[in-house]
Amino acid sequence: MIRWAVRIAMLILAGFGCILLSAIPLQPGAPQWPMPDLLFALCCYWVLRRPGSAPLIVVFALGLAADMLLMRPVGIGALTLVLATEVLRGQSRHLREVPFVVEWAMVAALISMGVAMQAVLIWISLGSPPTVGQLGRYAAGTMLSYPLVALICGGLLGLRHRGNGKLTYSTYLGEG
C-alpha cells in the first residue's frame, strides 16, 4: 500500500518535472522545434508498466495542469492524454510480451491520433489550428522522446515490467 502511494507520488513528481522541463524558455520567441509532449510519453510508459499506480484521476490532473501551465488549449490536451492512457491500460497485458519497438509503434500511433484529434477539435470549434507541418513536427518530437523517457524511467526510477509469469492474484488486483 505504501509502495503504491510512493509510486503515485513519484508519477506526480515526474509529471510535474516534465511540465517544468517543457516550460523552460530556451528560445521563447523563435523556437526552431516545438518542445515534445514529455508528459504524454511519461504517462504512456507508466501506464504500460504499472497500470495500478497511474490512476485515471492523477493522469487527468496532470494533463489539465499541463494544459493550463503550458498555455495549450484548455481541456483537450488532458482529454487526449486520458483517452490514450486508457487505451494503453486496456492493452497493457498484451503489450507486456511484445518487444519495445512494437510498443513504441503503438504509442506513436496514439500520439499522432491525439495530435490530430486536438487539431480537429480546434477546427470544429472555429479556431485556427496550427499547420500540418507544425503538428507533424510536434508529434514526431514526442514520438522520438518516448525511448528517451523510457530509458530515464526504466534506468533511473527502476520502472520496468514486472517479471514474466509472476502474475499473482494481488498484482492482478493491483493492476485493476
Binding site: S22, A23, I24, P25, L26, P28, G29, P31, P34, M35, D37, L69, L70, M71, R72, P73, Q118, I122, P130, Q134, L135, R137, Y138
Partner: peptide
Amino acid sequence: EIMADSAGPFSRSGL
C-alpha cells in the same frame, strides 16, 4: 523576465 514559454505548436506566448 520571461519565466516560461508555451512549448507546443498551439500557441506562442510566454509567462
